[in-house]
C-alpha cells in the first residue's frame, strides 16, 4: 500500500458516496447511466470472487465487500426506489460491444487458464470501458448536473491515482502487472475529455455543458 493507491481508493469510495448522496437528495437518478452501473456490479463481482478463498487484509476485505454491496444498492435505487426518474431512452449505448470484446481479451490475456483468472482479467478489461455508457449519455444530453460531474471526477481521480501507484510499485517492488497497467491507462484516457471540461468549467463555477 502506498499513498497513491490509498488516496485512489478513498477517491473511489468518495465517488460512490457522492452518487448515492446525489440520488437521495435529488430523489432522482436522472443523468446516471444504469448500464454503466450494471457493468460496475459485473466488474466487482467477477473480480472479487477471491473473497471466497483468499485473504489479503482487513482493508482489502472491507473495501471489496463495500464495492459489491454499494454497487448493488445503486442498482436498487435506480430500478426500484427511484425507478420513475430513470430514463432508459437516453441510455442507449450497446453494452454487448463492450462485454463481448472484453470476454475475448480475457481469454487471450490472463495470468493462467483458471476460471477465476479469466474472470479477473475480464473484470479489469470491463472496468476500463464501463464508464463509456455514462460518458455517451453525457455526450448525448450535452450537459450534466454539477454533482454528477463531481461523481465522475472522483471516479476519474481514482483511476488516475493508480498510475503513480504502479510507477511507485515498479521502483519499490520491481513489479509490473501488464494487464492492469494497460487497461488502467486506457481507462484513465477515457476521462481526459471529461477532465478538460470539468477543470475549465465546473471548477470555475460554471455549469457542465459541452460545446454544441
Amino acid at each position: 500500500m502506498n499513498i497513491f493507491r490509498f488516496f485512489g481508493d478513498i477517491s473511489h469510495l468518495a465517488s460512490i458516496f457522492i452518487l448515492i448522496h446525489k440520488i437521495h437528495t435529488s430523489r432522482s437518478c436522472r443523468g446516471i447511466s444504469f448500464k454503466t452501473q450494471v457493468l460496475y456490479v459485473a466488474v466487482f463481482v467477477t473480480r472479487y470472487l477471491d473473497l471466497l478463498y483468499s485473504w489479503v487484509s482487513l482493508y482489502n476485505f472491507v473495501m471489496k465487500v463495500f464495492f459489491i454491496a454499494s454497487s448493488c444498492y445503486i442498482l436498487y435505487l435506480m430500478k426500484v426506489r427511484f425507478r420513475p426518474t430513470n430514463d432508459p431512452s437516453i441510455d442507449t449505448f450497446r453494452v454487448e460491444y463492450l462485454v463481448g470484446p472484453c470476454a475475448v481479451l480475457a481469454l487471450i490475456f490472463n495470468y493462467g487458464y483458471a476460471v477465476t483468472e479469466v474472470l479477473w482479467s475480464f473484470s479489469i478489461f470491463l472496468e476500463s470501458v464501463a464508464i463509456l455508457p455514462q460518458l455517451f449519455m453525457l455526450q448525448r444530453t450535452g450537459e450534466a448536473e454539477t454533482i454528477t460531474t463531481h461523481y465522475l471526477a472522483a471516479l476519474g481521480a481514482y483511476r488516475t491515482l493508480y498510475i503513480p501507484n504502479w510507477i511507485y510499485r515498479y521502483f519499490s517492488e520491481g513489479y509490473v502487472d501488464p494487464i492492469a497497467v494497460t487497461a488502467g491507462l486506457v481507462q484513465t484516457g477515457l476521462y481526459l475529455d471529461f477532465f478538460y471540461v470539468y477543470f475549465t468549467k465546473v471548477l470555475q463555477g460554471q455549469k457542465f455543458e459541452l460545446p454544441a
Binding site: 483468499s54 473495501m63 495470468y111 493462467g112 482479467s121 493508480y162 513489479y175 502487472d177
Partner: peptide, 10 residues
Amino acid sequence: DTPEGNKDEL
C-alpha cells in the same frame, strides 16, 4: 513465484 496480477489491488 506464481504468475499473478496485482490481486492485492482493488
